[in-house]
């Protein structure tokens, strides 16, 4: 067992090392892209539309934009090397601090959405695979198609309309918590966990209610790919020789479907879930906007619109690192779930 653990750690370390060049590439590429995009931050951050040429030049000099692009890149890289992501012109705070404050909100939302999606998608996929071509199968297909067709902001608005405006069940969609609840002492940044740690059940429920609608509207979008891959892989699994073996000795239906078929079928779902998670984290900007969620994606969008270089670069770097990390976690999960992987 020890050797297995050691091998996993070595493998993980090697994977992290091998992803460094890709991260570096992302870094440089984003830097150059930001320089190519139209829009001059100096003009944007000048005191007003009447700011004189000299004032703009002054700001430009302050920001180091008067130097050549390669020089700027070197400065930027050396800053990154020291763990300094720069300062946001919008908020006036260091980007690292901004991201640190906002990332937990995004992560909490994405994790919850993914959890909801998996809880819905895996059973749907399994049911569809157990009765291929049946009414249930077609129902699942239709549901999945709808989930993909309807953009997240539409489904988000629809959910708000129904549950907040018509039924009044949900709280007003303004951020992670309503104005009357006091925040728990910050430990993890995940409100649900912090409230629990503080023993504040009422606060936890408030945060939960705020979270449910945005999480569901994000989940609706990714249920489709997860359910489809579950169905496809479950069909292969159910048709495989070892499931036939399991049936040949009369194992109970539950044992055949869950222990034999599903556990094998879940392997590709893990991979897809990892990809879906990374995509959601960056692409949930629309949901964050609709629900005024203080996440990193809406932060990056605002920064992009005001030509604020540092936060956008910081965001892209964060996303790339998270993507590497998520892939690593998926690999490790895969290694645990499938004994065949570790010997390769």
């Amino acid at each position: 067992m020890m050797t297995g653990l050691g091998a996993t750690v070595t493998r993980a370390g090697r994977r992290l090392l091998s992803s460094l060049p890709a991260l570096f590439g992302v870094l440089v590429f984003t830097f150059l892209l930001m320089r190519v995009l139209p829009g001059d931050p100096a003009v944007f951050f000048a005191s007003g539309p009447n700011a004189g040429k000299e004032e703009i030049e002054q700001i430009r000099k302050q920001m180091g934009l008067d130097k050549s692009v390669p020089e700027q890149l070197v400065f930027y890289l050396s800053d990154i090397g020291q763990g300094n992501l720069g300062r946001s012109m919008m908020t006036g705070q260091p980007v690292l601090k901004d991201l640190r404050e906002r990332l937990p909100a995004s992560l909490e939302l994405t994790f919850t959405a993914l959890l909801i999606a998996l809880i819905a998608a895996v059973p749907l996929g399994v049911i569809a695979a157990l009765r291929p071509g049946s009414v249930v199968d077609h129902g699942v297909r239709l549901f999945c198609a709808l989930g993909v067709c309807v953009p997240t902001f539409v489904s988000g608005l629809l959910l708000i309309y129904v549950f907040y405006y018509l039924l009044g069940l949900a709280p007003d969609p303004t951020g992670r918590i309503d104005v009357f609840t006091s925040l728990p002492p910050q430990r993890t940044g995940f409100l649900l966990i912090d409230f629990l740690l503080a023993g504040d059940v009422e606060g936890w429920w408030t945060a939960c209610k705020q979270l449910i609608l945005p999480a569901v509207s994000m989940a609706l979008f990714v249920i489709a790919p997860l359910a489809r891959i579950t169905r496809a892989s479950m069909l292969v699994s159910l048709g495989s020789d070892f499931v036939r073996t399991a049936r040949s000795v009369g194992l109970s239906w539950r044992k055949v479907v869950v222990t034999y078929a599903l556990r094998n079928a879940i392997l590709p779902v893990i991979t897809i879930a990892g990809i879906v998670f990374s995509t959601m984290l960056g692409a949930n900007v629309l949901v964050e906007k609709v629900f005024s969620w203080p996440g990193v994606a809406s932060y990056a969008l605002d920064a992009l619109l005001s030509s604020d270089y540092a936060p956008v670069q910081g965001f892209v770097l964060l996303m790339a690192s998270l993507f590497v990390l998520v892939n690593l976690v998926v690999d490790i999960c895969y290694g645990i779930a499938d004994p065949r992987v570790s010997i390769e």
């Binding site: 495989s240 036939r244 073996t245 049936r247 040949s248 009369g250 222990t259 556990r263 094998n264 004994p339």
Partner: peptide, 25 residues
């Protein structure tokens, strides 16, 4: 009724033994 028969009263051995066993159990 069928499950009580399968495995207990009659059972089967298959052609491709490696595929016939659950790979992750």
């Amino acid at each position: 009724e069928l499950r009580q028969l399968q495995g207990a009263a009659m059972s089967m051995i298959f052609q491709n033994p490696r595929a016939a066993l659950n790979p992750i159990r």
